[in-house]
Design a protein around this nucleic acid. Sequence first.
DNA 1: GAAATACGCAACAAAATGGTTGCGCATAGG
DNA 2: CCTATGCGCAACCATTTTGTTGCGTATTTC
Lengths: 111, 111
Amino acid sequence: MSNKRPGRLATRALIFAALGDETRLLVLARLSDGHPQSISRLTSGTNLTRQAVTKHLQVLAHAGVVRNVRSGRESLFELEPQPIEDVRNYLDQVSKQWDDALARLKAQVED
Amino acid sequence: MSNKRPGRLATRALIFAALGDETRLLVLARLSDGHPQSISRLTSGTNLTRQAVTKHLQVLAHAGVVRNVRSGRESLFELEPQPIEDVRNYLDQVSKQWDDALARLKAQVED
DNA sequence: GAAATACGCAACAAAATGGTTGCGCATAGG
DNA sequence: CCTATGCGCAACCATTTTGTTGCGTATTTC
């Protein structure tokens, strides 16, 4: 029984990796206004080709950060907030662990 | 005068990219206890070579997520919380924009 | 129905990434 | 002093990523 499931850590790494590109952050910012947008629309404003933007969108979609909906001849993408929430909470947790650890170290020194 | 400065977006992309790897997330978790640790120590517990871990640490250091301090013959690494705070706040902002946008859309529909 | 728009698929190329091995140097400890 | 430990550097390799071009297909629009 090999565990083929990605695991939480791998999932988070995937999400972070998806966010680790300037173009994709730009796309993300554009989609954060709540309006689904087509690939062509998202392409305008970048200096890339439509296919390049398509690939970036697929990376985001594979990480679950974005969802695709087909409408007529257009392929619309909208933001999916849940994965972002996930990594946001994760970073909160890391920060908290760090703070707590520092507090403990400081208390130990002052003892 | 070309602007050589990375820019906020590029900086954030760099940080996210640094977090976008399972091994590096593991290292991060290990360092979040506040204790600086040597490369050899961080290598134990992974199935990688010391050089591989060194490269991962360099990626993290280049993103500013981690800081290197030399102590004798050991190269210690400790977590640097500021970049993590930065992207954490950024994700907060994205989430808020999304929520606000949805609220506006909903209000418009119910109108 | 013909032209324009939006897209998908595939092949390809260049560059970045993730990892290894081999080597040499510095420092700690018996 | 000599040995073991911890690192750094460089070469090298395989894979993935990032981007392009070319072409075919579906859907509007006139």
